[in-house]
Design a protein around this nucleic acid. Structure first.
Lengths: 346, 346
DNA sequence: CTGAAAGCGCTTACAG
DNA sequence: CTGAAAGCGCTTACAG
């Protein structure tokens, strides 16, 4: 039923002009009289002509595809970022090829290599903790934290921390437990720094790294928050919504009311933050904007490469951008309880 | 520094043979003496030769890329599936292009069209609720539920429900509240059916659809579970881990101990199910196996198309496969409380 | 067993 | 303003 997928030659034949002219008309390179161009465009639409990506790629040396390299699935941010990247890319006419690191240590390197072999024009990489993206033969946009050396686009994790710290301080919290997973993460380090700044000098903080805790007590061990609250901590400021969830339920089960007896906060505004009771106060990450910046910077870097040249080794996009995070206040944070306890922090 | 990316001609030149022979040797089509083939392979490895996908695609009419069409981000299953698909595909030499439906109604159709225009050889689609994937011009593998008409690969959601129902029945639960989001979902309908079967005739169930509840009470409204427990329901069997989380925290905040006073179960074993206290009893979905089946069926369908032919309209893979789900018992389910209440279910 | 040649569908100097 | 021709890097009949 459906007619053969139309090629350039078919279109040209149907119009009685050369393929060169059709190509020029459709790519809008000028060189064609307005009337003819219009006729050609109309016919192309009518026949549903779409240029073959293979033909174009072979001729131009550009695939029109970018790669998206992600750390392993552990990061629940993945869906938002992936969706946002895809949307931003397709608005600019690029496809997005998945390059998953699979949680293996050198998975990232392999994923990058696979993408290069597939001929991507460039890639967006969200590096694994502690990894640096070294010179690879194509433009790269890195999404990480502002304190990452080199050019990256990121949310302003430090300022997000500062906002959250200020929020807690304004509620009267002076003794705050900070809970993260790994001190090696640039993102988490930024958040911690901002949190301390926002809480101000009058506050006492202590930091718990789950990775270390679990190395001793086993995965999924209790975080010992009940004891911490007894010690006088009035707020648990976590560095991710997943940790916040863990903290929230650990307290609830022990009969410690949130936020009446202790506040709990998260980061990123992931799906469950708003679903849980009480809703989790968190910092929203605007994935759409981060993706937009990354893709814009990347495609500009790609398109800046002169035709036919290979990209300079280790091209990294020129941008260094930072988008603000936004405080989302829900019920899990409230006024600090009166200090009714004289225990020392251990 | 790095040498030019080697092309076939370069390899051939370096070895003093024709490009045809190099091509034949590397593709293992026979036709080349074992010794020569070995020499060619060695040289190719040494130079790091990787065939240009564009050249190959143009010549063979195959892109070596499959599309992955996903419903909007709401589905937290996304990461697992995407990762598993990518892995299965790359094992078979295929790349994976993202096609996100963006949550719009006709986003799915648009995503499919974009992928076709990009020249994918076939695609895996996880359809939006109620959508049927109609004839599109390439092979398709659909991941949905076994009760979806047409060929699909899926987890055995019905049997998963049955297992969960049996688990609850064995703990003495006779009055179980079923909580899902939408009755239009094939997956959820299967799970409900299985649940009822597993609970057996001796049980009373009632079903709550969050979509309807929220249409009246607004998004994020309480599920009214406290009242249900007072009515004598001893278990809340939800159809997803996100709903389980919502139920769990709603009960905890009201001081209803889980599982001492009521059990809560979920589905899919998503990341938070094991992080929360108490851990959520759930049915694990083996995304890796589902993806493997889908990709295998898809690539077989692709490779069954004779060279140069376009795929028969609306080719759908031949397979209809189903992988079992696995019960994961955690602390959120326990023995039913003694019936101490004579209220009628409303 | 090996090679010369054609051609996949485009885009782009170059002529006219 | 328009067209004829070359060529991007492969694979595949077809000859030898």
């Amino acid at each position: 039923m459906k007619p053969e997928k139309p090629k350039l030659a078919l279109l040209a034949g149907a119009l009685g002009v050369s393929v060169a002219t059709v190509s020029n008309a459709l790519s809008g390179k000028g060189r064609v009289s307005p009337e003819l161009a219009e006729r050609i465009r109309a016919k192309a639409d009518m026949l549903g002509y779409v240029p073959s990506v293979a033909g174009r790629a072979l001729r131009t040396g550009r695939s029109g595809v970018i790669g998206l390299v992600l750390p392993d699935i552990g990061n629940p941010l993945f869906p938002q970022i992936a969706q946002a990247i895809e949307q931003a890319a397709s608005m600019r006419g690029y496809g997005v090829l998945i390059g998953d690191s699979r949680g293996e240590v050198d998975g990232q390197t392999q994923a990058i290599a696979r993408l290069i072999d597939r001929g991507v024009d460039g890639m967006v990489v969200i590096p694994r903790r502690g990894t640096r993206v070294s010179d690879i033969g194509c433009p790269v946009a890195v999404i990480d934290s502002p304190s990452t050396p080199g050019n990256t686009v990121s949310a302003d994790h430090w300022d997000g921390g500062r906002q959250m710290g200020a929020h807690l301080a304004s509620l009267g919290h002076r003794r705050v437990l900070l809970v993260g997973t790994s001190p090696l993460s640039n993102v988490q380090a930024d958040r911690i720094g901002g949190l301390k700044e926002g809480l101000g000098d009058g506050s006492i903080t202590e930091t718990v790294w789950i990775e270390k805790l679990e190395a001793n007590l086993g995965p999924g061990c209790p975080l010992g928050l009940v004891a911490r609250v007894a010690q006088g901590f009035t707020a648990i400021a976590t560095l991710s919504d997943l940790t916040a969830l863990r903290a929230l339920t650990e307290l609830q089960v022990a009969g410690i009311a949130v936020p009446a007896a202790a506040s709990v906060t998260g980061f990123d505004d992931l799906v469950w933050a708003s679903v849980v009771t009480p809703g989790i106060t968190t910092m929203r990450l605007n994935a759409t904007e981060v993706a937009q910046l990354a893709v814009t910077a990347l495609t500009q870097a790609i398109e800046a490469i002169p035709r036919g040249e290979l990209s300079p080794l280790g091209t990294v996009m020129a941008a260094r951008e930072c988008v603000p995070m936004q405080l989302v206040i829900r019920q899990s944070s409230g006024p600090a309880v009166q200090p009714s306890d004289q225990g020392q922090p251990s």
